[in-house]
């Protein structure tokens, strides 16, 4: 409610509102769709269409830590796929899944703009590059905190 009011009068406010909602609640939950449709005077289908279109918006909250591993070409060129596989195996995860204790979610991303220092990743919004097997230990330490 408060979030919607903050964007009142803005031009094309739906994306900023969804970003803020997700920042506050960890996802865009189902009830929010009905609420937003009424508040912005658009159909529920339109809101649903937007939420489902963009890769960023989650229907369920992610784990406490989110690791985004780059799978784009620059990272592929330095064996990023093999590295990513080792990271996934280390935590027993597959793309987009979360550890049973809710500690870590690993997601694919397509380019973080760190392409001269590949392979790269982002852990809870913090950039990491020139990754190697030592970095996996570092990630494990960060995540276990």
């Amino acid at each position: 409610m408060e979030i919607v009011r903050r964007h009142d009068g803005g031009e094309g406010p739906l994306l900023p509102i969804l970003h803020d909602l997700q920042a506050a609640f960890g996802s865009v939950p189902e009830p929010a769709i009905r609420f937003l449709a009424e508040a912005l005077n658009i159909t529920r289908a339109e809101v649903h269409g937007v939420v489902s279109f963009y890769h960023d918006f989650r229907r369920e909250p992610a784990g406490r830590h989110v690791l985004k591993l780059c799978r784009a070409e620059a990272c592929q060129s330095v064996e990023g796929e093999a590295f990513a596989r080792r990271v996934l195996d280390r935590f027993g995860l597959d793309w987009g899944s979360t550890t049973p204790d809710g500690r870590l979610t690993i997601e694919a991303t397509y380019c973080l703009g760190l392409c001269a220092s590949a392979p790269s990743a982002m852990l809870d919004g913090e950039p990491m590059a020139r990754l190697n097997d030592e970095s996996i230990d570092e990630i494990a330490r960060e995540v276990s905190r």
């Binding site: 784009a72 380019c111 703009g113």
Partner: peptide
Amino acid sequence: EGDSGTFAD
């Protein structure tokens, strides 16, 4: 700037 290999922006 979504192209892999770019970071100028």
